[in-house]
């Protein structure tokens, strides 16, 4: 765990931004996007949804 976390929910274990950022996600066209690119220009609020339905 990084020591860079300011706040977390009481029961949560904290993710590493380096590990999350190294992942890729897909956009609507199916093209890969590096997750870390989401917070290079703005602070990022990542909301993970359970499913699209």
């Amino acid at each position: 765990m990084d020591n860079e976390t300011l706040l977390r929910s009481p029961t949560v274990s904290v993710a590493s931004s380096r590990e999350v950022g190294a992942m890729t996600v897909l956009n609507g066209a199916g093209e890969p996007v590096e997750v870390a690119s989401l917070w290079t220009e703005v602070d990022a609020v990542l909301v993970f949804v359970r499913h699209f339905g």
Binding site: L6, R8, V14, W39, E41, D43
Partner: peptide
């Protein structure tokens, strides 16, 4: 799969995490 949220600053600091 359950959801959650992360708030990450431009320098990589995790400001908030929710599972």
């Amino acid at each position: 799969q359950q959801g959650g949220a992360l708030v990450i600053a431009q320098d990589g600091t995790v400001l908030f995490a929710h599972q």
